[in-house]
């Protein structure tokens, strides 16, 4: 049985800057894995490489046994990687329900023409989509807000909706980019429960970027620390956080 995600020697340069240098990671199915490091260390660039926003100069990415290196964003999403964004990116002028239904775009399909002509498949599939989307909203306690615009949700709920939308695409691996950014300690605590719940309920493998050490040490089983684009340390959370090099470079 191979790992859910294995990345070998991933590198990318922008001009003269080697943003990610020889990055390796191995995540087993069901793991909650943290990626930490100082600002500008290349964490989000790693996410962008994993999701096909950038093509790596070197290295290979495997999702289970499939080589997904060089595929475009849409293909990678279909292969089973979904993500959220550091600065929340919702479809803000659409309803909460529609946001999740857009996540279901490739799960429930029918031809465009049957949507225009309102053929029977339109009604059947739309009903299934509604049901599935409502289930997801219920999990995240958002079903009351299903008809409000995404932009009108409070911040914490927007984060939740983004996770719900990512899960709607039916991923095997979920990438969360600073999910606790801008949250107060209460909201962060609630978010930790949500992330754990998602892992257990959806049998999900999760890789997350985070600065909030309480969240990282609280829920991540393993960690990788990035510094200037390369891996400083990786392994079990408790070991990594006590690594003197990590303390010097990041924790201070």
């Amino acid at each position: 049985m191979c790992a859910m995600l294995s990345v070998n020697n991933l590198s990318i340069s922008f001009g003269g800057l080697r943003a990610v240098d020889d990055f390796n990671i191995e995540i087993e199915k069901g793991e909650l894995y943290g990626l930490i490091g100082p600002n500008g260390a290349g964490k989000t660039t790693v996410f962008n490489l994993l999701t096909g926003v950038y093509r790596p100069d070197e290295g290979r990415i495997f999702l289970e046994d499939r080589n997904i290196t060089g595929l475009d964003t849409v293909e990678i999403n279909k292969a089973g990687i979904a993500r959220t964004f550091q600065n929340i990116r919702l479809f803000k002028d659409l309803s909460v329900l529609d946001n999740v239904k857009i996540g279901l775009h490739n799960i429930f399909t029918y031809p465009t023409i049957s949507g225009i002509l309102r053929l029977s498949s339109y009604f059947r599939i739309e009903k299934e989509m509604d049901e599935r989307a409502l289930e997801l909203l219920k999990v995240f306690d958002l079903e009351k807000e299903k008809d409000s615009f995404a932009k009108n949700l409070p911040y914490g709920k927007q984060r939740k909706l983004e996770i719900a939308r990512a899960l709607a695409t039916g991923p095997k691996l979920l990438l969360l980019d600073e999910p606790a950014a801008g949250m107060n300690p209460n909201e962060t605590g609630e978010l930790m429960d949500t992330i754990r719940f998602v892992r257990d309920e959806f049998d999900m493998t999760i890789l997350l970027i985070e600065h909030d050490m309480k969240l990282v040490s609280g829920i991540c089983e393993k960690l990788s620390v990035l510094n200037f684009g390369s891996v400083l340390s990786r392994g079990k959370t408790s070991e990594v956080l006590n690594d003197p090099e990590v303390i010097a470079a990041y924790l201070g």
Binding site: V74, L90, F91, G103, F108, Y110, G115, E126
Partner: peptide
């Protein structure tokens, strides 16, 4: 008000996110 229309509006609202959820 169909699947295609939602995809079109998703592109309008946030192109990067639309791509990330698998919309061509």
């Amino acid at each position: 008000n169909s699947r295609a229309g939602r995809a079109i509006m998703a592109i309008r609202d946030n192109r990067i996110a639309a791509e990330a959820v698998g919309i061509n």
